[in-house]
Amino acid sequence: MQFIGIHCGAIPDTLLESELFGHERGAFTGAVRRKLGKFELANRGTIFLDEIGTITPSAQIKLLQVLQDRTFQRVGGETVIETDVRIIAASNQDLGQMVEKGLFRNDLYYRLNVFPIEIPPLRERREDIPQLTEIFLRQMNRFNHRGIHYVHPQVMEAFQRYPWPGNIRELENLVERACILETSSILTQTSFPAELFTKAPSALSAPTGRTGLTLAEARARAVAEVEKSYLQELLARTGGRINRTAESAGVTVRQISKLMRKNNIRKETFR
């Protein structure tokens, strides 16, 4: 089954209908041959329409026809084409408010709004920040061949305080920028913008996800996080050498190995 994604906001308004529904030869200047649209290519599959709120009124009418009748016509064509496709749409705008302002058709909105899933902004799910940072860091290492394996605890603390107006894309861009500038194996403060560390904690900051725990549970989780961060930082500094890590930590090699197994840390990651 086909899965076809299209970023509606990245395509000029004059070309969007052609991209979605295709066009016939001679339909407009430059249309030298017939082109199949995304809906035709995705037949019996899934089409993902990102930034659906940016599409033109005429494209909204055609999309409504697809949803209601499962049919469409290519631009410049007269043949009615049937399609069987599942539509997933996404928007970073409030489509309900756009409907109220007359910017989005309400009949199309209710056709699309069958099973809505609202993803909270990053500032409202700060517990995801460490995992997302780790994912982005792995991506940077894979594509740019950098030997950076860890984020300094002070940087992670700043991440937890920052309001993230640019959401997840801002976090990804900051990690990528830091990877370019960083000269060590740890992402440190010097590789990030200064305002990230001068931002005062807000009284309205979202909870960190620990308020549902007992004090003992919260304390145990905090200790585990500090323990893992400390171990990762030491391993990054020693290049994954267990003996030197144990010596720096003031414990035995056996204890370090046990902690690594407990936290699912591999020494090869830091070499």
Rank of each mutant, 00 (worst) to 15 (best):
G5W: 02
A27E: 11
I168K: 10
T54R: 09
F21I: 03
R244P: 01
I180W: 11
D128G: 06
N243T: 13
L49F: 12
E233G: 11
V155F: 03
T211V: 15
Y109M: 12
G76A: 05
S58K: 10
K262W: 00
Q139C: 09
E118W: 01
I180K: 08
V66P: 00
R34L: 12
E82A: 05
P201Y: 08
E176I: 03
T208L: 15
K101T: 06
I265W: 01
R146P: 00
H152D: 11
L204R: 13
K199R: 10
M260G: 06
K38F: 07
G102W: 13
R105L: 10
R33N: 12
L63F: 05
E100D: 13
A27Y: 09
R261K: 14
A203I: 08
E17P: 04
N106H: 15
L132G: 04
D50T: 11
D13T: 13
E233W: 07
R161E: 11
E268A: 14
V99Q: 10
I129Q: 05
K267Q: 13
G96S: 14
Q160G: 10
I119H: 04
Q2D: 07
L95M: 15
A203C: 08
R123E: 09
T208K: 15
L171Y: 08
I148W: 05
R244Q: 11
G147S: 12
R34Y: 10
N113R: 09
V66H: 01
R210L: 15
N243R: 10
K35L: 07
F48L: 12
G147W: 03
F72D: 02
R111T: 13
R254K: 11
E172D: 00
A200F: 00
K228C: 07
S58N: 12
P12V: 13
L67V: 02
I119M: 14
S185E: 06
R34E: 07
H7K: 12
E118Q: 14
S191E: 13
A220H: 06
P193A: 11
N106F: 12
